[in-house]
Design a binder for these strands. Structure first.
Lengths: 110, 110
DNA sequence: TTCCTATTTGGCAATATAGCCAAATAAAGG
DNA sequence: CCTTTATTTGGCTATATTGCCAAATAGGAA
């Protein structure tokens, strides 16, 4: 792994890490439904507003969401839907894992 | 976010975290090319064998790779190609980010 | 059995991440 | 200008992740 390869992997990792948190996954799915402002999301997630604000800044910093003023609030929106396929793929892996677990069980019962 | 939702997000996060590391991304791409044993990967990554062994166990634990004896070595292989689309999507986000950066620059020059 | 070779595991120190509270900002409405 | 409301930032502690070394383990080969 040379230096420029490493930099490229780190750039990818930054984006992957941005979604590697339960609250942030939730936020992404919710923002796919519709735009939301910080206090709404904090309420839904069930965490302190400052915590959610920090989550949003991580997502924004990774280029996954953007914000926009809506009156007195700041609303966040998804910047690309692509990230959802991404998460869908994770679901496929989970399904595959579950299936192989089942096969192991079936095998033992015989 | 109720309890079962949270559990579901945590299951996804486990998989996402598994690929959220430069060395592990590298390993996944290399294993897509062909199967590799631990010492080969350690050489390529440029880290201690024990470190790479731990990376592999994280990937294995997430169901992304599996291992198989090959003589005196243990070879690792990708369990699903799906994870690659996944990474391809990250690349799309990076491209989109770069494009919007360029737009910002172009805008300032006017 | 004893010696290699390949890999995994334990342990530790360094670094990164998370989440809360409190304080700082920003902007709208009196 | 002052107050209120929404959000962000700083600071701190708790927890998680990383990577190396050294030690343990697992199988072949002699």
């Amino acid at each position: 792994m040379n230096q420029s390869q490493k930099a490229q992997y780190e750039a990818r990792v930054k984006i992957i890490k941005a979604i590697a948190h339960p609250s942030r996954l939730f936020i992404i799915e919710e923002l796919n439904r519709r735009e939301r402002c910080v206090n709404e999301l904090a309420e839904m997630v069930g965490a302190d507003i400052s915590t959610v604000s920090k989550h949003l800044s991580i997502l924004k910093n990774a280029g996954l969401v953007f914000d926009e003023k809506r009156g007195t609030n700041i609303c966040y929106r998804l910047r690309t839907q692509c990230i959802l396929n991404f998460i869908g793929c994770v679901e496929d892996v989970l399904t595959a894992n579950a299936q192989s677990q089942m096969e192991i069980l079936r095998c033992c019962k015989k």
